[in-house]
Design a protein around this nucleic acid. Structure first.
Length: 403
RNA sequence: CGGGGUAUAGCGCAGUUGGUAGCGCGCGUCGUUCGGGACGACGAGGUCCCGGGUUCGAGUCCCGGUACCCCGACCA
């Protein structure tokens, strides 16, 4: 990609209203644009990162036997009245009306829709277990949006729902999801701790949140340094670890994912039943597993930056390498070699921009590998990683091997 | 929804006692620069958030709205 064609714009000054580091950097580096409170456009740079995160999540869900599909955003009131959540869900629903004055909600989550679907398609224990997921826009009528992409009113979310004959089978799959989630955060380059949590208005029996330690976190967790136990302060009121009795540390964290054992609360209310081996009707046992993609993107920035800008972890970076040209004739040849080898390169081909500005922008954007071609580099290329200062002169062929 | 703030050029801001709007960045043209956000000259760019009111005159004072941000409660 030629940088002269890339739709982006960097600024020296952070936006006036930005408080969190991810909000500042994502705006300054030209990744996002605010449309209204809690509503953001993902510009091409951010969209590239978003797609990488989506691919990782999709890969992990598929490995865990999830089947991807897509449910509607518009959800009829009638369905939500079956669970009683039309009026009680918090944050409240975004409600709209069709031309016949029928009320519809913009989906904040899909327990109702999927339970309706599954009760029609599943009738026997032979149809279970079942794992379905989607990656789709969610709408939440929050009282207040905060911190740029950290809490918004419209966002992309992966939600997987699992259906089982009994609690034991749910427990088994819940642990598979737990590991899949840990793998997602690891691949996205952030350290997440899973903590015991309260289930909020989703409800259910047990839930765990995945917390990324960060100054700007809205949550506080209690962490045991000795045995690794962690819990949200919403439920852990004690000062001493319930597992090993060591002292608990309080830490600020961002909730980057949440998984729930729903049990039979939805299936009972909505009559989602299956016949067991003896021909008896039983409520389907359910679990749900959610992760917000935009929040994860911002969380990565919160966890990985320096005074100059963002430092993207390799697997989610918008480009593999940032080729900076201080000599276009030579750089063009390097660019052709790299793209010919299938490497995704952002090539700063601009001729009317100073070297200093190119470097400053490169640091701000945060692509992990920086390549420079100039009259000083001879027939080689200077390579430098975003997260350290060491530079090295190597041949284009060696770069292809390294990347 | 309760409390606190802000609103002036694309962005960040200044604007004195009420006298008809300016700075920095960015943008355009030209020239000089060219390895850490270069410099000069010229230039374009305004519903001073909206609606009323006071006044000879309102960015500025008064009243009423709206939007956005922060703290609280809730969430991925």
């Amino acid at each position: 990609m030629l940088q002269s064609n890339l739709f982006y714009k960097t600024t020296k000054q952070p936006p006036k209203d930005a408080e969190t580091i991810s909000h500042k950097l994502l705006v300054q580096a030209g990744f996002i644009d605010q449309l209204a409170a809690g509503i953001y456009t993902l510009l091409p740079l951010a969209f590239r990162v978003y797609k990488k995160i989506e691919d990782i999540i999709r890969d992990e869900m598929n490995k865990a036997s999830g089947q991807e599909f897509s449910m509607p955003t518009l959800q009829p009131k009638k369905l939500w009245q079956e669970t009683g959540r039309w009026n009680t869900i918090d944050p409240p629903l975004f409600i709209t009306k069709d031309r016949h004055k029928k009320e519809l909600a913009l989906g904040p989550t899909h327990e109702e829709v999927i339970t309706k679907l599954v009760r029609e398609h599943v009738s026997s224990y032979k149809n279970l277990p079942l794992y379905l997921y989607q990656i789709q826009n969610k709408f939440r009528n929050e009282m207040r949006s905060t911190g740029g992409l950290l809490r918004v009113r419209e966002f992309m979310m992966k939600d997987l729902y699992s259906f089982h004959t009994d609690e034991k089978d749910l427990d088994k799959y819940y642990n598979i999801m737990l590991r899949a989630y840990q793998s997602i955060y690891k691949r996205c380059g952030v350290k997440a701790v899973n903590v015991e949590a309260s289930s909020g208005s989703i409800g259910g029996e047990e839930s765990q949140e995945f917390m990324v330690l960060a100054e700007n976190g809205e949550d506080t967790i209690k962490l045991c340094q000795k045995c690794g136990y962690a819990g949200n302060i919403e439920i852990v009121k004690v000062k001493i670890c319930p597992k090993c009795r060591a002292k608990l540390d309080k830490k600020k964290a961002i909730e980057a994912g949440h998984i729930f054992k729903l049990g039979t609360m939805y299936s009972e209310k909505m009559k989602a039943l299956y016949k067991d081996i003896n021909g008896n009707n039983k409520p389907i046992v359910m679990g749900c597993y959610g992760i917000g993609l935009g929040r994860l993107l911002a969380t990565i920035v919160e966890a990985s930056n320096d005074e100059k800008g963002i430092i993207w972890p390799k697997e989610v970076a918008p480009f593999q390498a940032h080729l900076i040209s201080l000599d276009n004739k030579k750089a063009q040849a390097v660019y052709s070699k790299l793209t010919g080898a299938g490497i995704d390169v952002l090539y700063d081909d601009r001729e009317d921009v100073s070297a200093g500005q190119k470097f400053a922008e490169a640091d701000l954007i945060g692509i992990p590998t920086r390549l420079v071609v100039s009259d000083k580099t001879g027939d080689r290329v200077e390579i430098k990683n975003r997260d350290n200062k060491k530079t090295e002169l190597i041949s284009p062929e060696e770069i292809i091997k390294k990347l």
